[in-house]
Design a protein around this nucleic acid. Sequence first.
DNA 1: ATTAACTTTCAATAAATTCAGAAACTAATG
DNA 2: CATTAGTTTCTGAATTTATTGAAAGTTAAT
Lengths: 181, 181
Amino acid sequence: MSLSEKNFAFVMHCGEMGSRWGFNRTIGQMCGLLIITKNPMTANEIADALSISRGNVSMGIKELQSWQLIRVQHIPGDRKEYYAPAGDIWDMANRVFEERKKREIEPTLTLLRDNLLDEASNDDELYAQKQMGEIHNLLETVTKWSSELQRLTPEQLNKLMKLGSGIGKVIDLKDKIFKKE
Amino acid sequence: MSLSEKNFAFVMHCGEMGSRWGFNRTIGQMCGLLIITKNPMTANEIADALSISRGNVSMGIKELQSWQLIRVQHIPGDRKEYYAPAGDIWDMANRVFEERKKREIEPTLTLLRDNLLDEASNDDELYAQKQMGEIHNLLETVTKWSSELQRLTPEQLNKLMKLGSGIGKVIDLKDKIFKKE
DNA sequence: ATTAACTTTCAATAAATTCAGAAACTAATG
DNA sequence: CATTAGTTTCTGAATTTATTGAAAGTTAAT
């Protein structure tokens, strides 16, 4: 079974975006392919569909599993492993987001925390620490926020978004309520 | 003037994170360096501080300017260009975020919009389109949300965050209000 | 108009990443 | 336990990306 032109274009696009999203081209393609393919696929089918080596597929599978983006399925009486996306689009996006947070934010937070523990011993260090403090705050805020948001279902999120002229209003809203109650 | 050990560690860390944040090692280092250095620096000072070539610094500057992360300053009676961060940490983070949205989300949105215009001509395409539709929704939501959030000052954001046990509550809040008013 | 101070560009090279394909491994089957 | 169907690991080649340093470009002062 080979891909329609449009579906193929999508898969190739996923490849091009792959590295921006945190993995590499092949892995991006594999991910896109599995998402738009109704039935789980074997490693060989993936290799054929994308014209890449079997070994490469194996590596890619390992990587996608480490991101928790795909899962293995077995078909009774068949020894092959079948791969499918792990969860719906929303789930997958959350996982990517989570993983990227781990890679892009957490290491820096750790370093900054350490660094901020020590006293600054001169003017340059004082200024540097001030700036690092700012970054630290920012990253903590982003982290907290994203975990709040991830708790919401897409529906809740949509609701929230439709609040009107911006989330800023919500703050006023909240103030109003606290006055009333 | 050379960096203290701690500041140097920070700059090197920025380098290591550089590629994760969307640029490369050198550019990450340059960005970190300029952020923690109180006074604007010349290209040569940057090259010295990081032990990289003058040409490389020039490239890096161009790139950082394209991200709108640094700006040039002139000192009267001095022909050299002095570089400094453009804005505070919050501003810079917003710019990085904005730029990454442009690179990581917008191209996909464009492709998906195109792809979703056509009728699916068979079962496989139908399923694929359903999935692409999901991705499209997700990305639109993320895009809208992030622009809402970026309008807020850090203070507003903090206020919002302190709403208590999660932003989810705000939705209930909103429902309550609509009943009342 | 020439020089000096500085910046940018670009071709050559170095370094890192990706990938195919072969070899090694694992587990089910007879 | 030997065979076979399947998966994983590894190596070096190819590709891509980053970096240098020299040459070209720019600008301001003399």
